[in-house]
Amino acid sequence: MKRLLWLSLLICVVSLLACAHSGGLTKPASYGYKVNIPEGWRKIDNNRYLLLTKENPFQQYILVQNRPIGKSFRHTKKKMHTTMLPEEAAQIVVDELISDQNLLNLKLLNNTPLNISGYDGFKILYTYQDGEGHTFKTLYYGFIKADTFFNLRFTAADRFHFQRDIDAFRLMLKSLEIVKAKKT
């Protein structure tokens, strides 16, 4: 029962972080993706994004999302668009993170341009604390392809799990392949 409660709470918090709920009706993303799931990691069922963990999501998780660029974020009213530079897209993500008061003492450690699977994008590294003072670190990759904003992020406890599991995330990132989305 307790485990079930934890899981439902986790789904809530990840949904917040994934910025997947808010906003009005938008067209579904035109592009999807393929990735190789790292060995030993398991999928947490979700039909909106790919959520993976090795032990449990409070220790580490990988989240992959393809969202239509017109979709609203939870906090900022700013929207992405097709002609945006990677830096401008990164700025919206940073604005969204800073406006999210769930992420206590958020520190932006790095925000740099990066080519991700052949697409111009960005990489953001930040830390934040939860309500109990535990520090988490997130590596966030993002890029825009046509009308789709792709983002892949790895979040883990900063003390130990981040360094231990980051290579699995990097390996998965290398396998990323963008494909035309299936029409539903």
Binding site: W6, L9, C12, V13, F58, Q59, D130, G131, E132, H134, A157, R159, F160, H161
Partner: peptide, 12 residues
């Protein structure tokens, strides 16, 4: 490492 976020969510 045992990370307990439960208190945050069990607060209400």
């Amino acid at each position: 490492m045992n990370i307990r976020r439960s208190k945050l969510f069990l607060f209400p």
